[in-house]
Amino acid sequence: MKKRALTLIMMLLLVAFSTVTVFAATTSTKKVIDNDGLLSSSEAGSLESKLKQLSNGIDMDVAVVTVSEIPDNYSQFGDSAARKYAHDVYEAQGYSEDGGIMLLICKATGDAAFSTMGKGIEVFTDSAQNSIMSAMRSDLSAGNFASAFDKYTDKVNAVYNDYAENNGEKPFRFGLLGGISSAIGALVGAIRSGSLKSQLRSVYKKDEAQQYIKSGSFKLNKKIDIETYKEVHREKIQKQPASTTETSSSGKTHGGTSHKF
């Protein structure tokens, strides 16, 4: 009986693990496109593998694209040129419309712009993008692009985890679930053996005499309830931060922000 139960549980686990890929919404597109040659090949390779792992983990595309210039036809957008260009690059590279974030860097003009789509708009709000930018600004200004992109990767992961925790959507944490399962297992084991052991005990001290109260003998001759004072506590309701959205050249909706470094 126990062997059957174990076999069934193992099969369920296998089925569960084997279905992981079915739910992935990331694309197979390269996550690092270094057109401006800001990274060495080993740095680019290392970043590619990190971003792929992160993309799979959070089920959204996380990408970095570097360009040598912003095309002239985007100059009509003024300060928003880099961001508008980033939206079009995002679509041109085929990143997921269901969810993603892309960082566009143009060293020549000192522009950094984010473009988000789908779930990425909800997760990576304007303030989140500002905090990502703050984390890497000094490295970008100093020309330490590999380090800046590492910080980008870490910060995107942290922002996603915060979002997931606040929205009850947590990434799978093997250790945490293992710990909780062990604790629940130990508790269930202790309750079962405790319950079996309690069958051996039938001798208890009585701390009350409830069954010896004479029926109908309880009489209340004073029942007074007086309001004394009131405490009032006010707490400001936290509003969810929002993302500003706009449309790309193709008319699709994106979130994003523009920055200078």
Partner: peptide
């Protein structure tokens, strides 16, 4: 907050 008083017999 309230103060409640009960008296009686049993």
């Amino acid at each position: 907050h309230y103060k409640a008083f009960r008296s009686g017999s049993l």
